[in-house]
Amino acid sequence: MEWMAWTWPTALFFIVIASLLVVFTVLGIRYPETPRTGILRIETTRGDRLFITLLGSAFINIAWLGLVGTNQAFALIVCLIYALAVFRWV
């Protein structure tokens, strides 16, 4: 594992993503769902909305880094609001 050059922050990053995947898998088994159509006019399941959230969050973070440049933690708050909006309306 030495060659992979692990650091705690990146490990934490992947642990969070992995646990999200596990949680959503368990949710998917325990509470089966039917896809719904939201404001994007595409059918989405919980998993799709998680993907849209994660991908969007990555772009929000990059945009914050490029445009604001400081206090990266605030970008996470924006991501959280974005995530709530995605799970509510998409």
């Binding site: 030495e2 060659w3 992979m4 050059a5 692990w6 650091t7 922050p9 990146t10 990053f13 992947f14 880094l65 990266q72």
Partner: peptide, 23 residues
């Protein structure tokens, strides 16, 4: 891909020695 993520926040001069570089 995970390795690339790890590399992206560090600096190296070879020899598998890495320094934290953040964002």
């Amino acid at each position: 891909l995970m390795t690339v993520v790890n590399y992206s926040v560090q600096d190296t001069f070879g020899d598998n020695v890495f320094f934290w570089a953040g964002l």
